[in-house]
């Protein structure tokens, strides 16, 4: 009996412990964020890594997401003669939901995993310790720029994803399915509000925080050599993706 309790209790204990550690790391990152120096060069480097280098994958994902959305909704709406709403549906889905979530998932896969791997390697090869010995706080040097870059760049990428996705939807809707272009755009303008876009961007900033926090956390607490680094990377991607989807529901429920 006690054995079974322990069996059930261990994951819960682990979960609570991990959550506590993440929150502590976040708070520590916040305090180090406000302490000078602000490492602009490192932030720029991470922004380039998180933002610029994720550009192609995010844009391809968004374009095809918009295209397939247009295709699917077209067949649905045609049943009751509402083809003109395809544009609005694509635009609303993208700005409110798919733009932020797809972008965040793509960045998690690309940059979140890289953060875990990079920090994990630095941890197991004592580079993190070396930073300490040189009186440089690794949280400030390694984690703050990554979190800041993700929080800033994921919304930026989301703007692009929203736009490219709508362009993709427009291409399929207007050029392939023959919806009138004027009506397609008019319905978008009619139904999409600025709030849809801004709330999507607020969500994406949160996703950026989540993916970078989990990525750096997993890397920063890596133990056990090369195998540990691999494990940390996998866990970072899985946990971050799940957390993004869960928090997406919560944020959506709060905002819309």
């Amino acid at each position: 009996m006690i054995y079974f309790l322990e069996l059930a209790g261990r994951p819960i204990k682990l979960f609570v412990e991990e959550s506590g550690k993440i929150v502590l790391l976040f708070l520590s990152a916040l305090t180090w964020l406000v302490r000078p120096p602000l490492r602009l060069r490192l932030i720029a480097k991470q922004m380039e890594f998180v933002g610029v280098q994720s550009l192609s994958v995010v844009m391809i994902t968004a374009a095809f997401a918009g295209m397939v959305l247009a295709l699917q909704t077209y067949y649905g709406f045609r049943m009751f003669g509402g083809e003109s709403l395809v544009g609005a549906t694509v635009a609303l889905s993208l700005t409110r939901e798919l733009g932020p979530v797809f972008t965040a998932l793509m960045v998690t896969g690309r940059a979140g995993s890289a953060m875990a791997a990079e920090l994990g390697t630095m941890k197991v090869t004592e580079q993190v310790d070396a930073l300490y010995t040189m009186s440089v706080n690794p949280v400030q040097y390694l984690i703050v720029p990554r979190i800041l870059a993700a929080v800033l760049m994921v919304p930026i990428l989301t703007i692009l994803a929203d736009f490219i996705g709508i362009v993709g939807g427009y291409f399929v809707g207007v050029h392939l399915l023959g919806i009138n272009s004027g009506i397609f755009m008019a319905r978008i303008v009619e139904f999409v509000e600025m709030d849809d876009i801004t709330n999507g961007l607020i969500k994406s900033a949160f996703f950026g925080l989540i993916l970078s926090l989990i990525g750096t956390f997993k890397g920063f607490y890596t133990t056990g050599g090369a195998e540990g680094v691999g494990k940390a990377t996998t866990e970072a991607v899985v946990y971050a993706s799940v957390s993004i989807l869960i928090s997406d529901y919560i944020l959506t429920a709060l905002m819309f």
Partner: peptide, 24 residues
Amino acid sequence: DDKKLNDIRKKFGMLFQAAALFDS
């Protein structure tokens, strides 16, 4: 605390087992 410890650490130099050079 961290701040004062960092001041003390500036007196130190340390060579790690695998050198711990920054890969980047």
